[in-house]
Amino acid sequence: MPSNYPGFRYGADRETFSAAKVKALESLLIEKGVITGDTVDTVLGYFETEMGPFNGARLVARAWVDPAFKELLVTDCNAACEAMDFPEGMSGAEGEHMRIAENTPEVHNVIVCTLCSCYPWPTLGLPPYWFKDPTFRARVVREPRVVLSEFGVELDESVTIKVWDSSAQIRWWVLPMRPPGTEGMSETELAALLTPEAMMGVATVSV
């Protein structure tokens, strides 16, 4: 039975207060020369255009069509990023040391950061709320199969689930399996099939 845990949607008063407080903080920091009037928008714009799951999707799509590239991606994720025509910055903040875990018919991978929310910013952008939720972080390390089934991923009993937690400085993500029925698709079409959840191991890819 679910408890009265509020999930992520709280009452209007609580949100109005936080909105007022963060605006008070930001305006004071601008006035005092800590940041500029454009700093926060500059950061947010960077995540819309430069660092985001669109990069991870292109890497996975390339790996699906090019076995040599897949080998590079799974052995040295940062080198694989270098080999793409990405703009500078794929080994930037929170992506200095990245690793990807490859799903196969025998092995399914899922990522977690039990202690907080470590995440590979250059390839996946910023983490969705479920990933930051203490419920997911607490449960997936012990009962990954049950948690995955709550996300709609039902795995055969023979499949080994590998849970990759990040308590040090390596940032993890997942290389999903290419779905059937995608033969002949271009890399761009394949990349469009990918979601952040698939590249975190809580969804599979389908056409």
Binding site: E15, T39, V40, V43, P128, P134, R139, E150, E197
Partner: peptide, 27 residues
């Protein structure tokens, strides 16, 4: 890790659920 008795997962896929959250992330 391993805490028992918790709820089912809330699969909220948004990065920010309120606009103000973007500001504190940027700061």
């Amino acid at each position: 890790g391993g805490l028992e008795g918790l709820d089912p997962i809330t699969p909220e896929i948004e990065v920010f659920v309120e606009p103000w959250e973007k500001r504190i992330f940027g700061i």
